[in-house]
Structure formats: C-alpha cells, structure tokens
Design a protein around this nucleic acid. Structure first.
Lengths: 110, 110
DNA sequence: CTAATATGATACTAAATGGTATTTTTTATA
DNA sequence: TATAAAAAATACCATTTAGTATCATATTAG
C-alpha cells in the first residue's frame, strides 16, 4: 500500500512527458507490445520501455504477458485521480472558501 | 505566440511537482507575494521563486508588481488546456472500452 | 540621504531524467 | 536442437531539475 498522495504524484509525473502522452494516444487505438510501440518512435525500444514503466507506475497502463511479448493496455481509471484534482481545484475560482478546497486539503493530495 | 502544443506541455510540466501544486493551494486562499509564500515552505525564497516562474510559464498563475513586491495570483483559465486534454482523452478511453466490451459480448453470443 | 526590505540575477551542486549500448533470459520456430 | 525474436537487466552518459549561496537592483521607511 502506497502513501497518501503518491498515486496523484506518480500520475502527474507520468503525464508530464510528451512521449508518454503520445504512447497513451497510440494505446487508445489498440493494445500493443513494446516492440510494436517502439516502431512509432525515433528512439530505442529500451527507451520506450522506460516510459512504459513510468506509465505503469502512474497507474495509466497495465501490462500482461502473452508468450514472449508484453502487451500494454490503457488502465481505465488511471486518469481519475488527476482529473478529479483538476476538477476540484477549478472549483476554487467559483468559491474560494468552499467545501471542495477543504476536501482536497484533508486528503493531503498535494 | 508560442507553438502549438507548447502550452499543454508547460502546464503538465508545472503540475508535475508537489511543491508547485502546494503553491497553487496556498494561492487559492489569497494572492501572495513571493516572501509570504516562501514562509510556508522549508526552502529558500529563491527556490520558491523558481517554482513560481515555472507556474507562470505554465499559465497557472500571473504576477503583478505592487511596489517592491510581486503579487502572485491564480490564473483562472490555467488548468483549461490540461483539463480538456484529459477529458478528450478519457473519451477515447471510454470509446475503446465500449468497443472491446461489445466485441466480447458478441463472441459470447456465438 | 541612508538603512532595511523585497526581489532579481547569476553561478554552482547533487540528484533525477531521458536516452544509448550491451548482455542475459525467455519463448517461438525452421 | 539451433537459431532468431522479444523483452529484461544493467551500466553508462548528457541534460535538466531542484535546490543553495551570493551579489545586485529597486523601493520603502526614518
């Protein structure tokens, strides 16, 4: 079990790189092995694999073995934490002293 | 005018650091000078200032001069690009999962 | 004017990050 | 079985990042 706030952090971290966001786009078409994915990028398969590890740590993808391949799939709830953080935070402009802010502070989701 | 995609990148980049997200929280209470903000963190004012620069580049805050102080304010539309990216992408996600689900259901009906 | 305050600017360091290259392990197939 | 393919593991490198320390500039108070 990871510490509070860690999930949000690893997700934002994973989203902060353009290559990783591009990988998510590619995976939204279809599940892909590392090799398949690497064909679309001008970098080594090892580099793509590293990005996939970060995406997995961020809860944005999951990986399943299929023979000698590793199939990468989008994780349905991966964007949830980040999306909710943004949504709640956006509410501050409507009500700076509102309940949403208190909720977020209590979660320590900094 | 900055290049397409740059805005999104700088915003995600700005959000990917816990100290910067914490600064946004503090600013949601009230506008603050650099010095005021720095009092809440265990780091030098110079370090806080660097984070503020990144937040400004990401379009998440704006800065106005007030005498010798620089007052930092949340930028209302700062989260828009990131929020829309996530929403748009979540759409693809749902579509794909929907298709997958349909495909599986169809197979089971054979 | 002078001193104190708030910030800006610069240079520097340690650690994290994104990338390559190479070797090993696992699995499929001729 | 021998060989090729896919990926894992490791070591290594260059750049970026987060932080500090220090000095300069601007502004307010006395």
């Amino acid at each position: 079990m990871q510490a509070i706030g860690t999930e949000l952090q690893s997700t934002f971290r994973a989203l902060a790189d353009p290559t990783r966001r591009h990988i998510l786009m590619r995976l939204s078409d279809s599940d892909m092995s590392i090799g398949e994915l690497a064909q679309g990028f001008e970098m080594t398969r090892a580099a793509v694999k590293k990005h996939l590890t970060v995406l997995e740590q961020g809860g944005l993808i999951s990986v399943r073995a299929n023979g000698r391949e590793r199939i990468n799939t989008l994780e349905p709830n991966g964007l949830k934490a980040a999306s909710e953080w943004i949504a709640y935070f956006s509410g501050f402009w409507d009500d700076r002293l509102g309940k949403l802010k208190t909720a977020i502070e209590n979660e320590n989701n900094i």
